[in-house]
Design a protein around this nucleic acid. Structure first.
Lengths: 244, 244
DNA sequence: TAGTGGTCTAGACCACTTT
DNA sequence: AAGTGGTCTAGACCACTAG
């Protein structure tokens, strides 16, 4: 028998569909424009709605689409560059893109954070919740874990919510933090994060874990969750060409 | 009418299922252990297979599970820390975790890369494919775009594949690169990337775009795709506590 | 109230790996 | 050949938004 062609693995329908839609997004639609609804699109391409949704899921994961329940599917703007590099240690900051403390959380740090805090985790750990927005849209929610030992000067423990949160961060800021140790991984939004980020629980997020050191010790640990659909994290000497 | 409870939004089945499975993974299973197959699991929890798969999808996205067609679903080991920070500019390196050039690609850079290369994109651009492995498993595939102007000393353009790839990188290494400009965003693996990473097309990846500068000009641009399921990217002064 | 995306079902077949 | 995960269907109902 003659050698046949290498079998030509059939491309999944949703994969092909994604390419077609991707091309159409570039040539036939403007940013912000509403696409036909899923039932119409599925019919138009002759596939089941679930199959169409597989293609849309991927495009949304890549930040090309934005879907809102009860409203529709729109073409997403390019991802916004969010700096998480050297610029961050000036904690509160005051630009439009700064973090906004929203509350003081009463809870135990998760095991992974406790490990990073080391010995400092033995005593009380302050937990501050803060959020970050760009162009009016929330892009990140963060929990900052600060061992009481790191902020001995903290007074007004009687304050509440945002006020107490600010007090903790203000004290932390007095330390000379040289923490440049960070990790980035993929995660899915918890119910709490989802609420802050205006997304559904389980939405894909980029989890940024930062360890701030003062001398040799861990002064604080921050775990930030960034909306993976809308954010492009930028590192290094402040933006540059990649900042977008 | 009396005030009723705040409606108590029903938690999606797959969301609850995920929590249950997540707990079970920690208490009842060892890393590498094989879970019951999807049909059994679905029956055990009294849900459709598609619903169970939604839960498994999320756990896989978080790096808790590993699924292999024809084999089964296993409990994944903790994510491996992969350094993408200051340590990288020593390009080839020779440790176990180094990049391995695998070929020289004949193709035009995508528009986004051309933009980053600036004027240098006008002449020929060398494109090198390289991969990176940890513990025998591939973790990243990268395309390095090097304008011909950046490597004037390049000879042996007659070489092929890996040999030519090495030649290009060797020449690039002669420059004093100070590029610390990087971005990280979520993407899905192309067919090519998927093959290198031993995953299916569309698998979630962390896309790291690096711009290497020499003086003021862009000397090269690298676009790396890291397996989001198995990798935790580490930045900053070489690992430290977060490296894991 | 009508229309949207989100969840869920109960099946079927396919691609792949192992035996 | 048997068993696994991956794809696909054709429905149904729910949660949410807007007119």
């Amino acid at each position: 028998m003659g050698t046949t062609t290498p079998a030509a693995v059939p491309e999944p329908k949703y994969w092909h569909l994604k390419s077609v839609l991707s091309d159409a997004l570039e040539s036939d639609f403007e940013v912000g424009e509403i696409l036909p609804n899923e039932r119409d699109l599925a019919a138009r391409f002759g596939v089941a709605r679930a199959t169409l949704r597989q293609a849309l899921d991927q495009l949304e994961l890549e930040g090309r689409l934005q879907r809102r329940r009860g409203v529709g599917t729109t073409v997403a703007p390019p991802r916004v560059g969010v700096a998480v590099g050297d610029t961050e240690p000036r904690w509160p900051g005051d630009s439009d893109e700064a973090w906004e403390p929203v509350g003081y959380v009463e809870q135990q740090p998760p095991a992974a954070v406790t490990r990073l805090l080391g010995a400092a985790a033995d005593d009380k750990v302050h937990v501050v919740r803060r959020v970050r927005a760009r162009h009016g849209q929330p892009v990140a929610a963060e929990l900052v874990y600060v061992p009481a030992a790191s902020v001995p000067g903290l007074t007004r423990i009687d304050a509440e919510g945002p006020a107490l949160a600010r007090a903790v961060l203000r004290e932390l800021q007095r330390l000379e933090l040289q923490g440049q140790e960070r990790t980035v991984e993929l995660g899915s939004a918890t119910a709490d994060d989802a609420k802050e980020l205006d997304r559904l629980p389980g939405a894909p997020v980029l989890v940024v874990t930062a360890r701030y050191t003062s001398g040799d010790a861990t002064a604080a640990v921050a775990v930030g969750t960034y909306r993976a659909d809308t954010c492009r994290l930028t590192f290094g000497e402040d933006g540059g060409l990649l900042a977008g």
